[in-house]
């Protein structure tokens, strides 16, 4: 019968008319992100960072700026380097996470938020001070050790720098014995 297909289509729309809504009313309700979510608010642990600049080299856009002082007396890597500047220009960041993947010391982690709108471009450049002040809620992206600890970046407890690393890092041969989680422990 001609018109049966149209009626069938109306049947589908009728079925969907009584179905529970799938949408979320955003500012009031929020959908749930997975812990691997690659978001803003990078988490950076100053005491884990050696200033090796692997992240800056692997960034496809070159937006990470690192300045190190060779005589800084930093404890790690034989006590040579101190990180003086660690800027991430989030205005150009595409959140691919390659910097996090490249970090050999698990010092840099992806963040978990997505509401980083500012009114000025300069505010999008996040500096060392901003990174240090932030509560540490790292995403579990490319961090299997955080996944094993069941870290919840959305409302869970902040992660201490000693718990953020892979096992191999705790046994780093160059790390001094009395450092937290050092080879002597």
């Amino acid at each position: 019968m001609y018109g049966l297909g149209v009626l069938k289509g109306f049947g589908v729309t009728l079925k969907n008319f009584v179905r529970k809504p799938f949408t979320v009313q955003y500012p009031e309700e929020r959908s749930v992100q997975h812990p691997r979510f690659r978001g803003q608010e990078f988490v950076w642990y100053e005491d884990r960072c050696t200033g090796c600049a692997s992240c800056a080299k692997y960034c496809p856009l070159g937006i990470i700026r690192i300045v190190t002082d060779p005589d800084g007396g930093h404890e790690q890597e034989g006590g040579d380097y101190k990180v003086e500047v660690f800027d991430i220009d989030q205005g150009r960041c595409m959140y691919c996470g390659l910097c996090v993947e490249a970090c050999p010391y698990d010092a840099l982690h992806m963040g978990s938020t997505f509401e980083g709108a500012t009114t000025r471009r300069e505010d999008l450049v996040i500096t060392m001070e901003v990174l240090n002040e932030r509560p540490k809620h790292p995403s579990t992206w490319f961090r299997p050790q955080l996944e094993q600890q069941a870290v919840d970046p959305f409302g869970g407890a902040p992660v201490d720098s000693g718990d953020a690393g892979r096992e191999a890092y705790r046994w780093h041969p160059k790390r001094s014995e009395d450092a937290p989680g050092g080879a002597g422990k």
Binding site: Q33, H34, P35, R36, F37, R38, M94, Y95, C96, G97, L98, E101, M110, S139, W141, F142, P144, E147
Partner: peptide, 27 residues
């Protein structure tokens, strides 16, 4: 897309594959 977010943390710009496989196992 929610499944993709579980796999790789992003919905559209996934960057899931790596040369030699994928970046990590599925959770």
């Amino acid at each position: 897309l929610d499944l993709f977010e579980m796999l790789c943390g992003a919905r559209i710009t996934v960057s899931y594959s790596r040369i030699g496989g994928v970046f990590a196992d599925a959770p």
